[in-house]
């Protein structure tokens, strides 16, 4: 079942690249098969998120990236820049590999935070433009949303600030 979805996805991708051109499938079919095989080799089995949840996450993500851009712009544009950079550590609880990658990448697009390093498979070192604030609640919220996207329910209490 997952194989069929991946095949369909790569076919769609090829369609986007080349437009509606039947001749292009001479190269397209082998490429799609190769890409599906390579994807299966690289990425283990991971639950596919549902469409409704993906839409919800995309909306949240767009809102957050606008907030992040405005935040960084307002900090840079002050004559005396309002920054006190530093590092904080956050303990990640997600288990699904795709969810972990998505979480680490999304941190970098969230306001004021940048994922810098992953230690011992669960501790993320986060660089913040304003390290005087406690980042843990916001990161825990993002983590819960990413977890829900991949069908992994995280409890609300004891978000892991180290």
């Amino acid at each position: 079942m997952t194989i069929a979805w991946r095949l369909l996805g790569f076919c769609g991708l090829w369609l986007i690249f080349t437009g509606w051109n039947p001749g292009s499938w001479m190269i397209g079919v082998p490429s799609v098969l190769l890409a599906t095989w390579a994807y299966g080799q690289l990425v283990g089995d991971s639950r596919a998120p549902s469409a409704a949840r993906t839409l919800g996450f995309v909306l949240f993500f767009l809102r957050e990236s606008v907030r992040a851009g405005v935040d960084v712009a307002s900090r840079i544009l002050r004559p005396r820049m309002r920054i006190s950079p530093g590092f904080q550590t956050y303990r990640m609880r997600l288990a699904d590999p795709s969810a972990r990658v998505l979480f680490i990448d999304s941190i970098s697009l969230l306001p004021g935070t940048l994922s810098a390093d992953l230690v011992h498979r669960e501790e993320i070192r986060v660089h913040a433009l304003d390290a005087t604030l406690d980042l843990a609640p916001e990161l825990a919220d993002l983590e819960r949303r990413v977890g829900r996207l991949f069908g992994e329910e995280l409890t609300k209490e004891k978000h892991g600030h180290v």
Binding site: A73, P85, L129
Partner: peptide
């Protein structure tokens, strides 16, 4: 703004902030 941040911010990590966020939004 992203370019200004890249030129103005003091260290590598801060510049990465400007690069990722401002440019993606732009």
């Amino acid at each position: 703004v992203g370019t200004l941040g890249l030129v103005r911010l003091p260290d590598l990590f801060c510049r990465l902030h400007a690069l990722t966020k401002a440019d993606n939004l732009g």
